[in-house]
């Protein structure tokens, strides 16, 4: 019986090691991503173009209506604690709070991102007019596509 068991181990050590390793990986990943939520969550936060330099996004495919956002990264465990599973109507999701372990907000940088950013001084009038020239719409469309990868 003992010899049979030893033979089984010797013949299948490769598969057994892999099986053990996979079980460990599944356990560790489950613990990290599902239980502890130990990862960064990135999403688009609501941005006020009158106050900040925001990215311009399109609400629809034709890009008739726009919205303004910044990129925010939060520690998943913190975000879950503040908003639960869904952040749609959660105010805390749009700001970095002092108790956040890891939080950063990235606004649009005109020098890096160029014309896809709003300009604080002009944004008011842009919102009121609700109108843009053709070139800007095209840029917005590109921006939207890139962000939807």
């Amino acid at each position: 019986m003992k010899i049979k068991y030893q033979n089984f181990l010797r013949n299948n050590f490769f598969l057994l090691i892999l099986l053990f390793a996979v079980i460990v990986v599944v356990f560790l990943s489950y613990n990290r991503f599902i239980v502890r939520r130990d990862y960064i969550v990135e999403y688009e936060g609501n941005c006020d173009p009158t106050v900040d330099v925001c990215f311009i996004g399109c609400e629809d495919d034709e890009c008739i209506e726009n919205y303004y956002y910044f990129n925010i990264q939060k520690y998943a465990a913190d975000l879950y604690g503040q908003c639960g599973e869904d952040i749609t109507d959660c105010e805390e999701a749009n700001v970095c709070l002092p108790e956040d372990h890891n939080c950063s907000i990235t606004y649009c940088d005109v020098e890096v991102d160029g014309d896809i950013c709003t300009l604080i001084s002009e944004s008011n009038s842009e919102i009121q007019n609700g109108d843009r020239d053709f070139q800007e719409k095209e840029l917005l469309q590109d921006n939207n596509d890139n962000n939807n990868i």
Binding site: A21, I87, N147
Partner: peptide, 26 residues
């Protein structure tokens, strides 16, 4: 040799070296 080749992906699978975050917008 097979185990050695698989070792990096197994060891780093659940660490930040594999993925560190998730984008819930995209």
């Amino acid at each position: 040799i097979f185990l050695t080749l698989l070792a990096p992906v197994l060891i780093l699978a659940s660490t930040n070296f594999n993925i560190s975050g998730f984008n819930i917008t995209n």
